[in-house]
Write a protein that binds this DNA or RNA. Structure first.
Lengths: 231, 231
DNA sequence: GTTTCTCCCTTACGCTGTAAGTATTACAAC
DNA sequence: GTTGTAATACTTACAGCGTAAGGGAGAAAC
């Protein structure tokens, strides 16, 4: 067999593998990202991937790396100066930027939870946020608490459980009637919420609004504690 | 062969399966909970489990159900009256109770994320929290926001990523020196935090303190918004 | 021209959840 | 006591997973 195979297809690089893995996960979810399918997508055998990566986890780390590179791009770099804004505003913008990226790659939270390592660009992201708060005058101690309080919200997600099976549609009257027996308070709340926003095409609630609501409470609380810190 | 097998061992009930699954997950983590190992632990073949459960997910749901039953027990029932306390205090106590239970079963968050269904007792838990806030005078709208803001914290966990590989020990001077180049702000913060609490046997930080800090910010912020709500 | 290195492939193993079909037991009816 | 029926557990087998071990073609280096 001539040099067809080697010459025709582009070389198998780490970049290409991670990029393909990303589009595979974007398209079919994390479950569809298997070594065999990934190899097939690249026109290669599964075991060939192990020349460039020690194992699948290394590919997952590559996905995180790439994701945070996207976040850096979305933020226009990881600055530590608020430049005109308050630190809260700057941090808020950055976090909402991270959220926009993660909404394009909804499988990322799951990967972040399965991998407990801190890939470089992810470390730089956190570092930049520490620096931003630092430039706002917060103490290291308060910042430390803040990182924990923000938690996953810092990356733009906070896991939310859907309330019914599919979660895509609003509850019908029948559903609410059945719920009223077992979980009366919950049913009453939902009935009112659904009634107030009957045109909602977002299912039961507006994720973005909820996210910002929770985020703002945390940012408010931190600012208040910062003010109290300097007597 | 006489009736030895059937007579000697207790019947294979849903209860017994779920209880055994729980101790298996408690002991060796979620990965060690496989159908084959679970069956072996019960003195039975793997496929026998499928007579009592349609699939593994049903067993996982059983684990969640059992977990929230434990939470209910820990709370002394799911009351919706603050009974002497403010709603914040009552909710705080309940959430910290849930947290105590989840600390005994650290694999529960992972199961909750993998299953998007709402098992009955879990629904009643949420319902009780809605009722508790309702009895404190909060509007359904604010409660709705609150549930999202609290998120997983409501169940007693907020996923926290460890900052280094093992995460069990404090960083050495060498680690900090290496970090100082790549993530200077982060390294500076950690250096100060570690220095302030050199006796900490908890690794880099005190999870419980961080958890309560974040929780209190959210509860404060909600109370403040409630006050603003009634002009 | 031989060796060495790079990159990819082949085969195979142990593990997973579970579909399909079968055997054993317990008990009631005849 | 035999037989029918339902409940319960077992057997076998399959497709898929990550990956260990080793092979082999081509290019590069000496």
């Amino acid at each position: 067999m001539p040099q067809r195979s080697v010459a025709e297809r582009p070389a198998l690089t780490r970049e290409r593998v991670v990029a393909t893995a990303m589009s595979l996960a974007d398209g079919g979810g994390l479950d569809s990202l298997t070594m065999r399918r990934l190899a097939e997508e690249l026109g290669v055998e599964a075991m060939s991937l192990y020349y460039h990566f020690p194992n699948k986890n290394a590919i997952l780390d590559g996905l995180l790396e790439r994701t945070f590179a996207e976040i850096e791009d979305e933020s226009g770099g990881f600055s530590t100066e608020a430049s005109g804004d308050t630190w809260q505003q700057a941090l808020r913008d950055r976090i909402l930027g991270a959220r926009r990226v993660l909404l394009r790659h909804p499988w990322v939270p799951a990967v972040m939870e399965s991998r407990s390592t801190l890939v470089p660009t992810m470390a730089r992201y956190i570092d930049a946020n520490v620096g931003l708060m630092r430039s706002g005058g917060l103490s290291h101690d308060l910042i430390h608490h803040a990182m924990h309080a923000l938690g996953s919200r810092q990356y733009g997600f906070s896991q939310e459980l859907t309330l019914d099976g599919d979660g895509s549609s609003s509850p019908g009257d029948q559903d609410l009637a059945r719920m009223a027996e077992m979980v009366p308070h919950l049913a009453a709340m939902l009935q009112e919420v659904v009634h107030d926003d009957p045109e909602s095409t977002l299912g039961w609630c507006d994720d973005q609004t909820e996210f910002e609501f929770g985020l703002d409470i945390l940012l408010d609380g931190l600012a208040r504690r910062h003010a109290a810190e300097e007597h």
